[in-house]
């Protein structure tokens, strides 16, 4: 059963110190002196900020590149990860992405052991947003607050955070007090602000409205510079490539993020390619997100985090695509 507490903002850093002292590795959003917010290991609680980071937590459980196993003298040696870690200060659009990754990587016929290894020892302390972020459109999907999938969820209510606890693992009486009805109401109101501030997209039935043969794909394809950012930054993209590297008498099997906007992604033997041009690759990306995944899993492969919009050098915008196929203009 979920319990509700609150913690004073003044105590947040001390609480983080406490967790660090307990031996957890803590990953979360930190602000650099240059003003950017990046999701990284927190060595000093002072660096933590309650803000959305550029990258989010995906690479902690699903790194850009990782060794899956080593092969030496006829034996396969699995990689280990015994770090006990807390992902502290994640956003709902990021953890909702974890849920989608779980469906694909853990719940099918085969389990992705590398992912499981890192995912299973990551405790989630989510921060539900009370302000709309710049490019986000999460209210079109799950909204800014998680229903489950966390250990704790913090919601800003002024001088305190309301804290929803799925379990008592990280609850320490020294820092947490009981929350009142009023606090809970205040939290709800604050979450509602995001719904008020954000534009809701006409997502309903988009899988039926979107079209393969449409000029929009060529138009966007002419701009796309194949940087891969829309995939790399996405909390839900899970495609990777696998290859081996030999070092001395050891062979490493490595996997690395891939991008469906790259020509080599769907290239076949003999350099044939069913997705030769940018237009067909953009169709793949948007169809996967808005059509195929919905057919296979019952939901769109997008959490509305807006990172692909923010990081696309030529401003290709999924919101525009959704609106366009719902009768809007480009």
């Amino acid at each position: 059963m979920m319990k509700v507490y609150k913690i004073s903002k003044d105590k947040l850093k001390a609480y983080l110190s406490y967790l660090l002292n307990k031996g957890y590795s803590i990953y979360g959003p930190v602000k650099t002196t240059s003003g950017d917010v990046i999701f990284s290991k927190i060595e000093d609680p002072e660096h933590f900020v309650d803000e959305k980071s550029t990258n989010g937590p995906k690479s902690v459980v699903f790194p850009e590149r990782e060794i899956i196993f080593r092969y030496r003298e006829g034996k396969i040696i699995e990689e280990k990860s015994d770090e006990r870690r807390i992902l502290f200060g994640t956003r709902t659009c990021e953890i909702e992405g974890f849920r989608m990754l779980d469906d694909v990587l853990l719940k099918g016929k085969y389990k992705d052991i590398s992912y499981e290894r890192k995912r299973s020892n990551s405790i989630i302390v989510n921060f539900a947003c009370t302000k709309a972020c710049k490019y986000g459109f999460c209210t079109t999907f799950q909204g800014p607050k998680l229903k489950n999938g966390f250990s704790l969820q913090f919601i800003d209510i002024g001088d305190d955070y309301l804290v929803e606890a799925m379990n008592e693992e990280l609850i320490v009486p020294e820092y947490f007090t009981e929350a009142s009805e009023e606090d809970i109401k205040k939290a709800e109101e604050n979450i509602n602000n995001v719904y008020k501030e954000m534009e809701q997209l006409p997502i309903k039935d988009i899988e039926k409205k979107i079209k393969f043969n449409d000029e929009i794909w060529n138009k966007l394809g002419n701009y796309c510079i194949n940087c891969g950012a829309c995939n790399y930054s996405c909390p839900t993209c899970f495609c990777f490539d696998v290859y081996d590297v030999k070092i001395g008498n050891e062979i490493l099997r490595i996997r690395e993020w891939d991008s469906c906007l790259l020509e080599g992604f769907s290239r076949l033997a003999g350099f044939n390619n069913p997705r030769k041009d940018n237009a067909s690759r953009l169709i793949q990306r948007f169809y996967h997100k808005l059509v195929y995944h919905k057919l296979n899993y019952g939901y769109y492969l997008c959490t509305g985090c807006g990172r692909c919009i923010e990081q696309c050098p030529v401003n290709i915008d999924i919101r525009d695509v959704i609106k366009y196929f719902s009768g809007g203009e480009l």
Partner: peptide, 17 residues
């Protein structure tokens, strides 16, 4: 860009600023 190290791997993060 920034580079952060996570449990054995590196991540590149473009600098917004």
């Amino acid at each position: 860009f920034y580079v952060v190290k996570n449990d054995g791997s590196y991540e590149i993060i473009p600098a917004r600023g």
